[in-house]
Every structure is written in C-alpha cells, then in structure tokens.
C-alpha cells in the first residue's frame, strides 16, 4: 500500500469515527491546507497541539450535542430540529459560518450562542434560570455541547456573514470601533495585540486581524483549549480578552459582544473555518 493510500484510509477511518463531522475533511486537514498556502507563525506555533487534533476532546461534545439537539427537552418537550439558524428550520450545514446575522423574528443581529438561547427559550420553553441556558461555559455544559455540534457542521467552509441587512453592517462597523477603542487601567484595545503579524505575548504567538488566513483560526470557536481542559466558545474568548484588558464583566449575548464578533467574523471572510479547533 502506498503512503498516500494509507493516509487516505486513515483519514476515512477517522471521519467514520467522528459521525458528527459534516465534511470529508477533518479540522486538522483544513488547518494543514491553510498552512500550506500561507506561512504563519501563529498557525504553526504548537506542533504538539497539532498532533493532538485527531484526538480532540471536542469530538465527544459533537456527539453529545447532536443527541441534545435531537432530543425532546424542556417544558415544551420539543427538540431543536425546528430552530432556524439563518438557513431555514433545522438547516445546520454552513449555518454557523454565516453568523452573526439579522433575524427578522427578533429584529436583532444574533450570534450562534444568542440564537441557540433564543431557540431553547421559544421552542423548548427553557428560561434564563434553567441550567441548560444559564451555564454558558465548560465542556460539561449543554451550551458548549450544542454549540460544538452546530458549529462542526460548518467545518472547512468559508466564513461568510451576510452583511446585507443595514443592522448587520451597523453592528459590524460598531464592532470595528470597539476593536480600536482604548480604555481601562492598561489603556488597551483589541488592536494592541491583534494588528501585527508574528508578535508574541510571552511565548504565545498572536493572530493578526488584518491577515484573514490566520485570523480564521483565531475565531474558530468552539475549540478545545489545552490550558483550560475545556471546550470554549466565541463568547468566552471575547470575555477572556476583555478580562485581561481589565474591562468590567460583559454580559453573554450582549450587543457589544455581538458587534465585536460581527467584526471579527467579517475579518475572516472567505477563509475556511476549523471546527472544532484545538488551541493552547
């Protein structure tokens, strides 16, 4: 058997072992193709993490999330199969790479997390106080399981938030202003760390918002974070950056968080999403 055949067989077996993954490509293949096309110290910074990607603990969350998605739950005893993430009720393939987007039923621009919460409230009857909604973080949360499953259905697809509705543009543009807005004890903005290529905080190479080929990995959440031993969301990434910047607490699903996520998703436009990813 040639090396190539062997490799293809391995990939096929790996794909079979991960039923939740929607495309033929595995996340690590999406990453390797990016690396082949674009030299980036950020993309290649941890060979050890790259070796771990086929064993990404986030895969477990895909399976659990799929079960939760299909299961009749909540006071209304309904599944999430009628939830519309922008491409029609129950359509998940490619839905996440087109978020955040405007939803006519709420009149708001929503990201994956806020849309998921909306569906759990309206379709399933959960309230904000129910653990299914209230617990936003951690691999053991319903939120992270569901988000990881839904996002995995966009693996390898190009980020393509619609940016057609005036509200989508307004949120993206305000997000850009926020990205550059300096404040708090250390005078930081997001741009302080994310507008240069190859620079490091301590040993960590930082992604540059102006380079879509590496920025796509920066925004590829959910991702398993090795240093946290948890799968983390986009909302968690925003929160942690703002915590380091000495900002006050940011409310999950808030308009400021969605404006930032709208801007950062637009900045990765056209580049393939790595879902789920595995990061430091």
């Amino acid at each position: 058997m040639s090396n190539n055949t062997m490799r293809m067989l391995t990939v096929a077996l790996a794909a079979a072992a991960v039923p939740g993954i929607s495309t033929a490509k595995q996340p690590e293949e999406v990453l390797q193709e990016l690396i082949a096309k674009h030299k980036s110290a950020y993309l290649t910074q941890s060979p050890q993490n790259m070796m771990m990607m086929p064993d990404n603990p986030a895969y477990e969350l895909i399976d659990e999330g799929k079960k939760l998605f299909m299961q009749a739950r909540g006071p209304k005893n309904a599944s999430l199969e009628k939830c519309d993430f922008g491409k029609g009720p129950g359509v998940l393939a490619g839905a996440y790479v087109q978020l955040p987007r405007y939803f006519a039923d709420t009149g708001k621009v929503m990201d994956l997390e806020s849309r998921l919460v909306y569906c759990m409230q309206t379709l399933q009857g959960f309230t904000d106080e129910d653990p299914a909604i209230k617990k936003r973080h951690g691999s053991d949360s319903d939120m992270m399981k569901l988000q990881t499953y839904i996002a995995s259905q966009s693996n390898g697809m190009a980020w393509n938030p619609p940016m057609k509705h005036p509200l989508e543009k307004a949120m993206r543009n305000a997000g850009e202003v926020l990205f550059y807005r300096r404040s708090a004890n250390l005078d930081f903005n997001c741009a302080a760390c994310h507008t240069q290529t190859g620079k490091r905080i301590r040993a960590s190479v930082l992604p540059n918002e102006k380079v879509p080929q590496e920025w796509t990995r920066a925004i590829s959440w959910p991702a398993y974070r090795v240093s946290h031993d948890h799968v983390r969301s986009s909302q968690h990434r925003v929160l942690e950056c703002l915590w380091q910047m000495r900002y006050p607490n940011l409310k999950p699903g808030s308009d400021a968080s969605i404006a930032l996520i709208s801007f950062w998703t637009d900045a990765a436009r056209g580049q393939p999403a790595i879902l789920p990813d595995l990061k430091r």
């Binding site: 307004a170 202003v177 926020l178 006050p248 808030s254 404006a259």
Partner: peptide
C-alpha cells in the same frame, strides 16, 4: 435605531447604554 447611528456613536451606546457591560461592577481601585 442602530442603523441611524454613526459607528462611533453606536459603539459608545453599546458600551454605556445597551446593558452590555456591568457598569456598576466594583473595581480594585
């Protein structure tokens, strides 16, 4: 109406008026 606001004005609104941040959170200082 967010669509009627300039990006700078909307950003300030999002920071201080939209309920996005815990503006009353006590700080160490």
């Amino acid at each position: 109406d967010y669509t009627k606001m300039k990006p700078e004005a909307l950003a300030e609104y999002l920071v201080f008026e939209s309920g996005s941040f815990d503006l009353e959170q006590p700080t160490q200082e």
